[in-house]
């Protein structure tokens, strides 16, 4: 038994670990010059899919299990990613664009220790004239170094997200074993963090930004996963249980 626990609770509330991490993220990106913006959780099909180069009937729609809302004819849904915020922002702002958006997203899939129907994501978008994959790499490394408080090695693997081209999966060398392989990285030496890429020209065209003049990067990753990695929480459901046994540890 931890004897600290025997002392009475101080009369001070505890911030939820998700909020602690979101505050860290917003603060770090703010320092890097990124504005934090919001978007609705209940979205229109257009912002969640079509405008992100995922047309109707495209097999890529199967990549995400969507919570559609009634009536079906309204074509409303719970956003499956924070990427929809990109579109809403770009419709109203011209480049240079430098934003992040952290918020709740939803996937219609069975829940277990690593999957929840509601979870949190962060989206990052940077558009200007000469933005490259090298900047994307640099921005990711800079963020994660500040977040984990130590040097981070990132790697890119080819991937596909309809709203970027080229698209990457980005991994971070395991902070626990530094690549040797351990239980955190399941022996691979790498931790998958999220998806990223150079914004697809069709996405830019769709919001009236000329892709011949402007280019940029976007990336997104799960905040819950970061929380779990940072604090060693093994079940995502504990984040939404409303349980002070969890929250009061923070």
């Amino acid at each position: 038994m931890n004897t600290n626990e025997s002392t009475p609770e101080k009369n001070e509330g505890h911030l939820h670990p998700l909020s602690i991490v979101i505050k860290d993220i917003v603060s770090i990106f703010n320092e890097m010059g990124f504005e934090s913006v919001d978007g609705p959780e209940m979205e229109e099909e257009w912002y969640n899919f079509d405008a992100l180069n995922v047309p109707s009937f495209h097999p890529a729609r199967d990549m995400q299990d969507t919570f559609w809302l009634k009536p079906e004819s309204s074509r409303k849904l719970l956003r499956t990613h924070t990427s929809s915020v990109q579109i809403r922002y770009m419709e109203k702002h011209k480049p240079p664009i430098k934003i992040i958006s952290a918020g709740k997203v939803f996937r219609n899939e069975a829940t277990d220790a690593t999957h929840e129907a509601q979870f949190h994501q962060i989206e990052c978008l940077m558009i200007d004239t000469e933005i490259s994959v090298a900047h994307l790499k640099g921005t990711l490394e800079q963020f994660f170094e500040k977040f984990f408080g130590k040097k981070v090695v990132a790697r890119f693997r080819p991937s596909y997200f309809p709203f970027v081209e080229p698209g990457f999966e980005f991994d971070m060398q395991c902070f626990k074993c530094e690549g040797a392989g351990c239980n955190v990285c399941k022996g691979t030496g790498w931790i998958e963090l999220g998806g990223s890429g150079m914004v697809h020209p069709k996405v830019l065209e769709g919001v009236g930004i000329n892709p011949e003049k402007y280019q940029g990067f976007a990336f997104g990753y799960g905040i819950d996963r970061l929380v779990m990695l940072k604090y060693g929480i093994d079940d995502i459901r504990q984040l939404y249980s409303g349980d002070l046994r969890v929250v009061n540890q923070f």
Partner: peptide, 12 residues
């Protein structure tokens, strides 16, 4: 927080 309230996230 100062008044001793702790934060929870419940289900939508």
């Amino acid at each position: 927080l100062e008044k001793g309230f702790s934060e929870v996230y419940t289900y939508v």
